[in-house]
Structure formats: structure tokens, C-alpha cells
Design a protein around this nucleic acid. Structure first.
Lengths: 220, 220, 220, 220
DNA sequence: TATGAATGAGGCTTCATTCAT
DNA sequence: CATGAATGAAGCCTCATTCAT
């Protein structure tokens, strides 16, 4: 039996989509419910039929988007064994989703801290699930653990999540190429044993050369 | 003769530092000038002796921090020839600065879009300068251009700038290690020729498997 | 079919009326929106449902009042031919309106310069229309042009518009008499040929007697 | 013995002059003490050496200007007997002063209501003195009292004081002509016996033609 | 005399949200 | 389902004024 998509559902989703675009554009806190009313052609008070508060609206967007993202990831990984292929698929999935839903992606990446209380907890749970999937694959890839696992995982997510800051679909490479490049970038480094690196890259940069200057201004 | 650091300068910088911490904590738009007044022990109106508007305050923080970051980077690269060593130093500089100034870093990374007009232009100019430095080095590293240069550059910055989302100094690896790991990660992939990659990583992921589902709304 | 007067319209007009009284009393800039909220029994924010800014409120008052004034004037002059009678009617119309709407009148006369930008332009356009009506009549009255037309026109308006500075309905002459007196005053002078004036009035006052003392600062 | 003009006096007067220009331009309440500090090149706090409050500054300007105006008027009328000539001189004096000191004039005419308490009382006293001089002359001119004396007097002042709203020295007639025209205008009407007026000007305008429309909006 | 630094009071406006209809 | 009208809270900023130096 198939779940019905009622008129209510459709309107809610249309509101979520429009709101995501607005939140992406102006930022969650800058965007006013009035902005959303205007863009959706729903009256100010009419919106509250679909969500109980602005924060819930943000939650719905994030939860919905994250849910989709994870769902797709899990489905895609089903039955794949080769960890290299797995991480490759995860990256492609992530980027494809992000670029196909740039507004939602930006809201996801940028408005993480705008949720509080239970809303935040629930989104964080999903986030953790996703990073655990990734970490699991990375562990499979190098059981010996050449690099710190958290560093590797979040470097990967950093690379990917950051794209909302620079990627422009009209002028940058297409998603396939983006995914291929990032995969090569990440896997090349991650799979490599330390001995394969050129000398200068292996040797530690001299931290002692950095004196007190590292505080923005004089430290005391 | 050295330029004097007046009491005014010192107080302004102390205000900038405190404000950066608050903006980092609550976000620029959530933070109220009252919050800053409270934290700095200056009266609400007294603050306006040091900046003309909340936005100028944000600008001063970003401009100051970016200025320092770039200045250090340029000084550090002076006289270095080996491009591998150069990029290594750039990474270490960046991360060391970010971790030494986590509040400023977060404001830099997260509040890029909160500036408008001329303020935004001026900070963007600095940002561009930094990425051009990086791009220049990456070009030196691989004149043949294995990867798209923008993808490579911003992947690197994404890795680094994202850390404010996950890095905790108490429990994560120290900066030196962080810098070493990220350098390896990036250089390993970036310097590698395509032929060195394992099979599964080289082969394109099957984009055709991703149907229309990529819109946020669909999956039920 | 007549355009409906909705509850919204009525409330807006009541707000305009009350606000005009407050602006007349304390001056536009001295009056606070809080004053208006108090006097109208509408909450501070509730007022903004009826106008977008304090300046728009002032504009609405002026525009509404000026519109009425001009409308009445034009209607009243319809079908009147004798220019003497015309100017007589214009004066009576003006004074009657002003005294019947002392608050609006004062706001009109006194807060001309408090409007800026487009608001100002639009009110000025109406103002110009009114003075052109007057000028037209004055030209008819003396095609030979005994007096400078601008001087005559604005002297007349000066006489009339100034009344908010001194006229008190309880103790001064009633409007009819006021209009009659001002009409006589103005027409007597305006229609008279120079030769009818007493000698001393015709002869120029000796300007040479006024030396440099005319700067404010000088005198003893 | 002559009263010395100390450096203090000179600076005060320069401040008054500059302030008058600013008050004339932006209005008393819009102008900030900071504006005045900027324009006078005196520090904000430095100004308070010359006046105790912004209101006192306004008072000083008005009192000084009115004092000069009346002083000149009285001196000029000394020894003049013919009332026609007297009023002629008064008008010329008034207009010449106003046009020679447009800023002060505007402050005088426009900011009458911005003074409170004793400041206001003292300026009002001067104002009354001036209108009594004028009324006295008008009484001499027509002992029979053809027109209401207050109406005549304040019509005259209205004509004259209103000029700050329209007179532009570059394009309008010169002061001498202005004074001549206004004198003719006023005296022509004021001296004339009712019987000399054209029929239509004498006959009352039909007040009954003005129905309820005279309230800006429906009255209740 | 003169000023740099500071402040309390108050101004306009916007916001998320509610409620009667 | 939907909305017009309304509101309390809060936000940013400016102002006249002061005071130690």
C-alpha cells in the first residue's frame, strides 16, 4: 500500500522548498516569516498551520533533507563490498545531492547551530549517523590507521560541505567531475603510505618558528 | 620610530577580541550589542565610540584577523622555493592561526555572508588574495594540471575552514599533527598521477543510477 | 457605485487625525511614535500596520489635507468668472479650511521641510498646483502686472498660512470676518494703481541709511 | 567707555552664526550638537563652555537676533512723525534684516515653539514689543479702525515672516523692491475705505456653500 | 579653555507570534 | 484552512550632556 500524498503534504513541501531557498539566501535569522509569507503567497498567519514556530520550520527543512541524504546513501551502499567503491559512492551521493539541492545544502551546512534543544539533538543524531557511515568505510580502507580517523573523516566532509561557498554550477566543473576530483584528492592522500610522499611534504613544518604572533593581537 | 599603541587602540582591540568570542558563540545576528556591552563592561552607547555600527564591528574583526593571517602567510613564504614546502607551510600557518584564534576563525568562516556593501568587498579582496597565493603554489606543484585548480584549491580550504565545526583542542590531535595529516591528505591526492589510484577509485561512479529522486521532496 | 469605507479606512483616518493633533502640538520631530500610540490607543507596533514609517505618517497627513484643500478650491471655482470673486473665494476657502482643521493646517504650514525624498516631492507638487491657481487669478486681476507676481502671490499665502501662529478661535474674529478682512487687505493693495497711494507710502524708504549693521552680530 | 569685544565674545558670536545656519538648514531638533561641533571646529564638550544647553543656544540666537531687529527698528523710527512713513520704515527694516540674515530669520520664524519656560517667555516678550510697535503705528494710521487690528497686524507680519519659505535672493526681486511691493500691498488695503473696493470684493463669500466637507474627514 | 571618553535615556522599527473571525 | 489585525519584546542607534584631565 502506498502512502497518499495529500494536498496538505504537497503544500507543506512547497513551503519547505521555498523557505529553504530564502534561508539559503539571507540566512535563517535574517529571513523573516514575512519574507516567507511573501515568497510562498501564504498569509503570515496561514503559515502557522504548517509549522508551529520558525525554528520548527528550520528543523523540518534540515530533517527532511538529511533524511533524504542518508536514505539515499544507505540504499546506494547496499550490497557494495569494496570499501574504495563505497567511499567513492558516498562522495558522489553527497555532492550530487548538495548540488541538486543547493539551497537545502546551504541550510544544512550553514545553519547547523541555529537549532536548539530537541530539534538540534534530532538533527545531530542524523549527522552522527552519516559521519559514522563514513568513518566505518574509512576504517575498512585502512585498518592500520595511518591518519587520525576524525581528522580524515571531517576533512572529507569539510571538502564537500564547503562547496556552497564557492561552487557555481554555471561555471565550475560538472558534478561527475567534481566527485571524481574530490575522490582522487581524498583517496590519493588517505590510501598512501607515508613513505610515498616527497621529502618536503613528509617533514614537519617547524612549529617553533611561530612565536607569540599567533594571537590576533598581543595576548595578555 | 614605532607607531604608538594608545590606550584607545588597546581598548578597541580588547573589544574586538571579546566581540569575536560572542559572535563565534551565538552567531553575528543573534548576538546583540547589549551582549557585547555586558561582556566588555562598556555601556551600550559607549561602544559606539569605537565603531559606527554593528556591521562595522564585524568588519573590523574580520579585516583584522584576515590581515594578520595573510601577513603571516606572506612573511612565512618569503625565501621558500620548494612548492611542496610552501603549501605545507601555508597549511600549517592557516591551521595554527585558526586554532590559536578559534573565535576569530569561526567568525571568518561562518560570517562571510553577514557583511554587505563595501565591507564585504574589502574582506572579499583579502580572501581572494589568500586563495590566489594558494592557487599559485598549486599551479607550481602540478604544471600539467591534473585536477581542476578551483576544485583543488577550495577543497583544501574547505578541509581547513571546516574545522570550527568539529575540532576540539582538548580531545583532538594537536595542531602539528593536524597540519601534518591534512598536508599528507591533500598532497597525497594532489601530487599523485591518475595511474597510481586503485581501480575502483579511478573508475567513474555510475551517475546514471541517480534518477530524479535528487530533489529534496520526493522520497516519502 | 460608491467606493466602500472599510473599518480599516476609518481607523487609518482616525489615526491620521489624532497624529495631526499631536504633530501640531509638539512638532513632528518632538512627537514620538509612543505619543501617538498612547493617544490612539493602539500599540506601538500596531501603528505600523497603518503606515510604514513615521515619515510616511506625516506624508499621509499632509497629502490628505492638501488633497482636500485643493479639491475644494477647484470645485468652488468651477463656473466662477469674475476674478475678484475668484480670489475672494480662494481666500475664504483657504482660511475656512485652515481654521476648521487647525492641526492639519499647522502641520501643513510648519512641517513642510520635515518631508524628504519622494514624499516631499509629491507634497510639493500639490503645493505648486495651489499656488499656480492663485497666480493665475492674480494675473487675470491685473494683466498689466503692477506688482511682482511671486511677491503678490506669496504675500497672500504668507498672510493666510501664518495664522496658526496667532489666531485663536475663541477670542479672535470669526472666519467670515477674517476672510473678509484679509480679502480687503490684499485686494485693496493689489488692485490699486500706484498713483492712489499717499505720498510717503510711494516714496522709497532710504536704503542708504542701512549700513553694514545688518549682520546680526554687529550692533553696539 | 566702550564695551570691549573679547576673544570670547567673538568666538561665541561665530558659534551663534554657524549654529543659526545649521538650525535654519536642518531645523533645531534635527540638528545635533555634533553637527554644530563639526561645523564650528570646536569639540563637542568645548561648546558647552559657551552655552549650558542646546536650548540656551537656540535662545541666544533668537534673543540676539530679535534684540538687533528691535533695536534697529526703534532707532530708525526715532523722530519720524508720519505714520505712513513709519510703517514703511518698519517694513523695510524687517525685510532688510530678514534677507540680510536669512538663517537667523528662519530660526526666528520657524523655531518659535522650540523654546520653553523662561527662554520662551523672554523671547515672547521681545516679540510682543515688536508687534506693539507695529500695532501702535497701525492705530495711528486708521484711528477709526476699519479692520480688526490683530488681523491687520499679523497679516502684515505673516506676509513678511513667511518669506523664508519662498524668497530666493538670486532670482527674486531685490529687497528694496520687495519692501516697496509689500508696503503698497499692505497700505493699499489697509488705508482704503470699504467703499473703494470693487463690488465682488466687498460682498461676503457665501459661507453656507461650505458644508460638512470642511473637516479633513468625517467629523465624529 | 578645551577635549576625549563615556553614559542613560529614549528614539524608530521589526519580529515572531496570536486570536477572533 | 486561512487571514487581517494586533501586540510585547527586543534590536540598533543617536542624543544631549558630563567629567576627569
Amino acid at each position: 500500500m502506498v502512502s497518499e500524498r495529500t494536498a496538505y503534504d504537497e503544500k507543506l513541501e512547497s513551503i519547505l522548498r521555498t523557505s529553504a531557498a530564502i534561508f539559503a539566501d539571507k540566512g535563517y535569522h535574517q529571513a523573516s516569516i514575512r519574507d516567507i509569507a511573501r515568497a510562498t503567497n501564504v498569509s503570515l498567519s496561514g503559515l502557522y498551520y504548517y509549522f508551529k514556530s520558525k525554528e520548527e520550520l528550520l528543523f523540518l527543512i534540515q530533517d527532511h533533507a538529511f533524511g533524504t541524504l542518508i536514505h539515499e546513501a544507505e540504499e546506494m551502499l547496499l550490497g557494495v563490498d569494496d570499501p574504495v567503491r563505497k567511499i567513492r559512492l558516498l562522495i558522489e551521493n553527497h555532492l550530487r545531492f548538495f548540488i541538486g539541492n543547493m539551497a537545502e545544502m546551504k541550510v544544512l551546512s550553514h545553519e547547523a547551530g541555529s537549532l536548539t534543544g530537541d530539534f538540534r539533538r534530532r538533527v545531530n543524531a542524523k549527522k552522527r549517523r552519516l559521519s559514522e557511515i563514513a568513518m566505518g568505510i574509512l576504517r575498512e580502507l585502512r585498518p592500520d590507521g595511518g591518519l587520525d580517523l576524525r581528522v580524515a573523516t571531517f576533512s572529507l566532509f569539510g571538502m564537500m560541505n564547503w562547496i556552497y561557498n564557492w561552487y557555481r554550477p554555471e561555471s565550475d566543473v560538472p558534478v561527475e567531475r567534481l566527485a571524481a576530483d574530490m575522490s582522487r584528492l581524498f583517496l590519493g592522500g588517505y590510501l598512501q603510505s607515508a613513505s610515498q610522499l616527497p621529502d618536503a611534504a613528509r617533514q614537519a613544518a617547524p612549529g617553533e618558528q611561530h612565536p607569540s604572533i599567533w594571537r590576533t593581537t598581543a595576548p595578555h
